[in-house]
């Protein structure tokens, strides 16, 4: 089979029903023009939904033009699925309007809360993992999926504290949410690594405990290093640095199970020129290509398990 020409492959990606199993990039206004001028080989772009909840102007102009060329992931950061209060229906309507307008291949949100009353805290805040929280999160995700009439992906969080009230592990909690609501998992490998370091967990074991058969997208990003009061390493999910080697290693481990999955390079702070990010996109694409030719271990035929 001859390889598709670049423009054919890009156009087909734009019209596809799902995100392609390739590397994608967070779309930043600083890169709007260079993307349209150079049409780089990128599997998809991802935007934060709330940034595009504006009436008009350049954001919509450029996103519309870029969407014609590329697949799109719509990633919410303000729905506050973990909030004690009911979901904001006006916000759901605004999401539905964006989905109608841009027909993204994927919609995702976070296992977190970010609002209290009408105050928006602009951060992804942690939840205790209890039966009560589980019920609330599942109810909210049911409501999201029925309001938007589509399956959503839920992202595992980066956290800095734990709750004494938690009775479930984070992986059990996420597994239950996925099982009960039918949502997919947005596996954020950086969040996973950050949380495991911050809470003294074994990252590989944590990864294996997640519902990896339901991963619809993977996020890769960079972190910052601090120390906690005991002198132990405390990682901050900064999205302001290149992807760390430990995160690449875990990503490879994940791909061994999931096979190739749409993978986002996320950089929201200290944004470098597009070329620098394209190099990371290329690195992820290299691992995805290799995973393409390697049957996923989860689905490996019996004889492959036999000793040589």
């Amino acid at each position: 089979m001859s390889p598709a020409s670049p423009s054919t492959s890009r156009t087909r990606g734009a019209a596809a029903r799902t995100l392609p199993p390739r590397a994608g990039l967070g779309l930043k206004p600083a890169h709007f023009q260079v993307i349209l001028e150079t049409l780089p080989q990128i599997g998809f772009f991802e935007v934060h939904a709330e940034n595009y909840m504006v009436a008009g102007g350049p954001f919509h102009h450029y996103l519309g033009r870029i969407r014609e060329q590329y697949a799109l992931s719509l990633h919410g950061v303000g729905l506050s699925i973990g909030a004690e209060a009911p979901l904001d229906v006006a916000h759901l309507d605004a999401l539905a309007a964006l989905i109608d307008r841009y027909a993204p291949q994927s919609f995702s949100e976070h296992l977190a809360w970010s609002t209290h009353g009408d105050v928006f805290l602009n951060d992804l805040l942690p939840l205790p993992y209890t039966r009560a929280t589980l019920q609330r999160v599942c109810d909210h995700i049911d409501q999201v999926q029925s309001h938007l009439r589509r399956r959503m992906l839920l992202e595992n969080p980066a956290t800095y504290v734990e709750f004494a009230a938690s009775t479930l592990s984070e992986t059990t909690f996420i597994d239950e949410v996925v099982r009960r609501t039918g949502c997919g998992l947005l596996l954020d490998v950086n969040n996973l690594y950050v949380s495991c370091v911050n809470h003294g967990r074994d990252a590989a074991a944590y990864l294996r405990a997640l519902p990896l058969g339901h991963v619809g997208e993977i996020h890769l990003a960079g972190f910052a290093r601090q120390q906690d009061a005991a002198g132990d390493l405390l990682l901050i999910d900064s999205h302001g640095a290149p992807v760390a080697q430990a995160v690449w290693d875990l990503y490879q481990l994940a791909l061994d199970v999931t096979g190739p999955v749409a993978t986002l390079i996320e950089r929201d702070n200290d944004i470098p020129p597009l070329d620098v990010l394209l190099a990371e996109v290329g690195a992820a694409d290299g691992l995805l290509d290799a995973a393409q030719h390697e049957p996923p271990s989860g689905r490996r035929p019996e004889h492959a398990e036999m000793p040589a």
């Binding site: 504290v161 709750f163 906690d228």
Partner: peptide, 10 residues
Amino acid sequence: GLMTWNGSDL
């Protein structure tokens, strides 16, 4: 109600 794995100051 918050805690840390290593007992460090919250």
